[in-house]
Simulated scan of single mutants.
Amino acid sequence: MSKEVNVVVGVIIRNDEILIAKRSAKQHQGGLWEFPGGKVESGEGEVEALARELNEELGIEINPEACQKRQQIHHQYPDKAVNLNIYWVNDFSGTEQGKEGQPLKWVAKEQLADYPFPEANQPILDELLSKN
């Protein structure tokens, strides 16, 4: 069994739209859409890692106090295990841009089903698309 990768994920919400990014073809699950985030480094807290990753990938600064942990998802792919720590991000500054060349899109919740996501993201999509 492969080692589990510890990841933070930001569900970035603005005016009832969600920011999604397309994974590079070279990445694991490449070509699929995702909620931005990345690996938690050794000695780093989850929110600290989320702030660093979103700044590196998107050029935005988040308000750590406004981040709300919503889910923790463990998923085993055939070649990799992931532990996703999911945070809702409602307060950020800066203009988002794909700093690693990745396409970005703001989409309405109802449109999320139109985009292919990695299998591990299904619980996030389920929560976003639920009527609760």
Rank of each mutant, 00 (worst) to 15 (best):
R70V: 11
A108C: 00
Q72I: 10
N55S: 12
N132G: 00
A49S: 14
E96H: 06
Q29L: 11
D114L: 03
Q111G: 01
P36I: 09
R14S: 12
G30Q: 04
P78I: 08
P64K: 06
E4P: 03
G10C: 13
F117A: 01
M1F: 13
I124V: 15
V9Y: 00
M1T: 12
N63A: 12
E34H: 13
K3E: 12
V5D: 01
P78W: 09
Y87P: 04
A66K: 09
G98P: 00
K69L: 13
K105G: 11
H28G: 06
A21C: 03
K80L: 14
E65P: 00
G10F: 05
L84T: 01
E46K: 10
A66E: 07
G31K: 09
C67R: 06
L54D: 07
A66F: 02
R14G: 04
H74V: 10
I62H: 12
N132A: 09
P103Y: 07
Y77S: 07
Q68G: 02
E100H: 14
E110W: 01
A25L: 10
G37V: 08
P78L: 11
V40N: 00
V7D: 07
I73F: 07
A81C: 03
A25N: 08
E46T: 13
N83S: 14
A120G: 11
Q29A: 02
G101W: 05
F117L: 13
Q122D: 01
E56L: 10
